[in-house]
Design a protein around this nucleic acid. Sequence first.
DNA 1: GTCGCGTGGATGGTATACCATTTCCGCCGG
DNA 2: CCGGCGGAAATGGTATACCATCCACGCGAC
Lengths: 250, 250
Amino acid sequence: MTGISRAARPRPVPPGSSGLNARDRAYADLRYRILTGRLAPGTTLLETEIAALLGLSRTPVREAVIRLAEEGLVRIRPRHGITVVDLTLADFRDILDVFSALEIRAVALTAARRLTAAQRDALATLTQRMERATAEGDIARWSDLDDDFHAMLVGLCGNARLQRSIGEYWGQQYRGRRLILPHRPLPSASDREHRAILAAVLDGDPQAAHAAHLAHRARADRDQLALLQRVLTPATPEPIEENSHEPHRP
Amino acid sequence: MTGISRAARPRPVPPGSSGLNARDRAYADLRYRILTGRLAPGTTLLETEIAALLGLSRTPVREAVIRLAEEGLVRIRPRHGITVVDLTLADFRDILDVFSALEIRAVALTAARRLTAAQRDALATLTQRMERATAEGDIARWSDLDDDFHAMLVGLCGNARLQRSIGEYWGQQYRGRRLILPHRPLPSASDREHRAILAAVLDGDPQAAHAAHLAHRARADRDQLALLQRVLTPATPEPIEENSHEPHRP
DNA sequence: GTCGCGTGGATGGTATACCATTTCCGCCGG
DNA sequence: CCGGCGGAAATGGTATACCATCCACGCGAC
């Protein structure tokens, strides 16, 4: 394909998304609003309301909403409206289980492939930049780079279906990451594990990559869930700030 | 349960189709036709034609087709119609990669759960019946039981999202199984591996279950792909089924 | 006061109408 | 004879209309 990579696929989706049909625009727009918290969990809207909100008719909105529902971001209750799903700790556990299983496989596949020098460099550079971010205590920056690193590992696996499924869960997992971002400790363990993953991938050793990524995800998921529990459990004594590094205003 | 109460209006409802909404009926119907080969790979239909075929309007058909496309069973090419995807060996490899990764995780989760006596019995019985089928050389029956066994392991994992994703890939994997069914050797290896999986699950040992299922899937996938290669490579495919060709347009 | 039933309205599921885009095909010019 | 161009028809994407269904609410009966 194009020499330049498809660019880090994550990112909730830039606001200026254009050149698509109405269905995809509606999907991208709604997904973006949900992932960035502009559409808060629990928000309930009618098909008509969403259509009006986006300036479209019900048909494309409906198709987009069905897709979001299949992805687990919203729930459709006939005659009750479309509700932004409020994820519980158990939900996050389930999501991470699936997401990790897929990602581990993807990394193993990537390790089994021949990478170009540019790709190898890019991976190595990302880990270095993450370590620098850690050293500087810039967790938000680290988190973005971590997204890029994982996305790149997945993007190189060569299995389009696998990538698609991972992308499907990425959004849900992202919501959890976003919630705990302000509470994250320094990701020294992740940095260390990333080194091991990188080494295995550059070595072209799928077995080692599988093991390394499995270990990484097991620990990272455990930590993330522990943090999520802390964030989610309070009945709401402390309003969780919806602002992080995003522009404000809902 | 549904009985006659629903039939308030004379609707040209497809025969046997239970009382779902039109979208789900269209989805189930099309999926069934594709998986059973009634809609042969390569078949191309227009939205209008499918709608006429199912006796529905385009709207629900469209929604169903979008879902099938996301699932990878059909391909939508605007202004060219909806084509039943003809899976290549590479496709099957990709599909099995994802499917196995998910199923392995599911089995590990199941092993981590407390099962009821009935569930344990059911699993044990299934393996026994499979072994009997093997002894009798009834591969078709064995294959069905194998489906049941795997489905039950997955069904017990307690992660609804994981189950959903597995279900999404099950259909595609099923097409491959169906293709090689007549060429399968006696599944002695599978039976042996199933014993190991069963033991680990009944032991409540997720680690062991993970390892056992990983080994099982790795070997089974390898064998299946080898068979698929044999089935798929000949330019002039053997009469795999009695399925008739679609009438071609003049 | 509470429970049950009926009715009206809201809602979403489905059908249909409309329109922009693309493709196919024939015609004209080179 | 070939290739580009134009237009008509087909097609899918979108908008809208329609209608069965379900829910809420109120009224009446117990």
